Amino acid sequence: MRLQAQPINVVSILGNDYSIKAPQGQEETLAQAVRMLNASLADTKRQYPTLIGDKLLVLAALNLCSRQIELQREHQQTLERTQAQIDATVDAIVRTIAEQ
């Protein structure tokens, strides 16, 4: 049995090149993540022009993580609202069937 080697992708972040192995089929996801990180770095740099290197990277990463947490909370609230609507619909159907 031969394992298929993962392709190595070279990405650039803060002017440094990194060789990263991405599972087959995940190359585009990696490319999107790099674009998102670079965009976040650029935004953070505009807000805090004196930040460089690790400090810039950490602040940009924290901003991305904060946004991810917000999205997860919004998603959970949407799921809870949807479940409540489903439960109400099922209750209404059960009542309608019981009345007949």
Rank of each mutant, 00 (worst) to 15 (best):
Y18T: 00
L56H: 02
T78F: 11
V94N: 08
E27A: 00
A42F: 07
R35F: 07
D54R: 11
R81G: 03
K21T: 06
T96D: 06
G53I: 01
E80Q: 09
T50D: 10
P7H: 06
A39V: 05
P23C: 00
A42V: 04
G15Q: 03
T89E: 06
Q85Y: 09
Q24V: 14
S19M: 07
Q24G: 10
Q4Y: 13
T82L: 14
S66A: 15
L37V: 05
I52A: 13
S12N: 08
G15C: 02
Q85D: 11
K55Y: 13
I20H: 01
L71V: 05
I52K: 08
L57A: 12
A88T: 03
Q68V: 04
A33I: 02
P7Q: 06
N38L: 03
V11A: 00
A98N: 15
P49G: 03
I13A: 01
V58A: 12
V10W: 08
V94F: 00
K45P: 04
A60N: 03
K21G: 05
I69E: 08
Q32L: 04
Q85R: 10
Q85G: 05
L51S: 03
A61F: 14
V10L: 10
Q83I: 12
N9H: 14
N38I: 04
Q76N: 09
R2S: 13
L57Q: 10
L62Y: 04
N16T: 07
D54K: 15
R81H: 06
R73N: 07
S12K: 04
Q100T: 13
G15E: 00
L56G: 02
Q100M: 15
A42M: 07
I13D: 00
Q47S: 09
Q100E: 14
D87T: 09
E99R: 15
T89I: 09
I86W: 03
A61C: 11
T82I: 06
Q72D: 11
D43W: 05
P23F: 03
Q76D: 11
L79N: 11
E74D: 12
A98R: 11
P7D: 07
L30V: 00
Y18H: 05
Q83F: 11
A39L: 10
A98V: 06
L62I: 15
R73E: 08
Q68S: 14
T96S: 04
I86C: 08
T82D: 09
H75G: 10
E70K: 13
L59Q: 09
